[in-house]
Simulated assay, not measured.
Amino acid sequence: MAEMGAQKDKTPSELIDGRIAELGDWRGETLARVRALVKQAIPEVVEEWKWRGVPTWYHNGMICTGETYKDKVKMTFVKGAKVDDPAGLFNASLTGNARRAIDFYEGDEIDEGALVTLLRSAAALNVKA
């Protein structure tokens, strides 16, 4: 119960910092890199901590999440099906009519330029909505 109280006293950004540190492996490094690219792509982005531990990024609406699993880091784009993906970054959740995701596995390279472009496109959809 004390841990829940301690979490309530922290900002979403502090909770995300904690998650990155807690992971302490390639997943933490990947989440930190993804987070930095989100902030680079969308300087006005707002970080939230949703669903008991999922980093979530907003700008005029939700853009994406940064989920961590035992074997991957997953970026889920809430309106991904509407986002142009010329670099073919989306590799998961490809059959739905709304979301698309990118699963990063240990050792994967991140195409930073393509991801920044994808993030900006996703944020632009929220402005048009």
Rank of each mutant, 00 (worst) to 15 (best):
M1A: 15
Q7W: 04
K10T: 06
K10M: 04
T11P: 15
P12C: 05
P12L: 01
S13M: 10
E14C: 06
L15M: 07
L15K: 14
D17L: 03
R19E: 12
I20F: 01
E22W: 02
L23Q: 08
D25Y: 01
D25P: 07
R27V: 03
T30L: 05
L31G: 13
A32W: 07
V34D: 09
A36Y: 05
A36E: 14
A36V: 08
A36S: 15
V38I: 09
K39E: 10
Q40C: 03
A41N: 07
V46W: 00
V46A: 10
E47M: 05
W49A: 02
W51S: 13
W51G: 13
W51K: 12
W51C: 07
R52Q: 12
T56L: 03
W57N: 06
Y58E: 07
H59D: 09
H59Q: 10
N60M: 08
M62H: 13
M62I: 13
I63H: 11
I63S: 11
C64A: 12
G66A: 10
E67K: 14
E67T: 15
Y69A: 13
K70Y: 01
K70D: 04
V73H: 08
V73D: 09
K74T: 15
K74E: 15
V78G: 11
V78M: 13
A81L: 03
K82T: 08
D85P: 14
P86W: 02
A87Q: 07
L89A: 05
L89W: 01
N91T: 09
S93E: 12
S93F: 04
L94N: 14
L94R: 13
T95V: 08
N97C: 06
R99Q: 15
R100A: 01
D103A: 12
F104Q: 02
Y105H: 09
Y105V: 00
G107N: 03
I110G: 11
I110H: 07
D111V: 07
D111C: 11
E112D: 12
A114C: 06
L115K: 07
V116P: 15
T117E: 13
L118N: 11
L119Q: 04
R120K: 08
S121N: 15
A122E: 05
V127H: 08
K128Y: 06
A129W: 02
